[in-house]
Amino acid sequence: MITLEYYLILAAALFCIGLFGAVAKKNAVAVLMSIELMLNSVNINLVAFNRFLAPSQLVGHVFAIFVIVVAAAEVAVGLAIVISIYRDRFSTEVDNLDWLKW
């Protein structure tokens, strides 16, 4: 029997992997992908809570759909900025973003 705990542990693990990637990866696109992992762990949480706590209501599902939509919008803007950075510097390494003092 798979209980709520399994899903929560999976989501927590995914979140930590995503956070690690977001901090450790050097390429901006890879950082964006890691952030997607973090957001997907949130979606697992939401859907799992919805399924186990209040299966009759769909609040968690609705929340998850909103998260997916907003994440897509954010990535669209993000990739546009990555392209503009690439035009300026011919690189998308996060480490090279040291023009402003970090």
Partner: peptide, 21 residues
């Protein structure tokens, strides 16, 4: 300007992921 935009985008996406969690 584009560097600031990039930093803001990455960090705010990360922070909203944390907030959402």
């Amino acid at each position: 300007s584009s560097e600031a935009g990039m930093k803001y985008m990455l960090l705010s996406a990360m922070s909203s992921a944390v907030l959402l969690y």
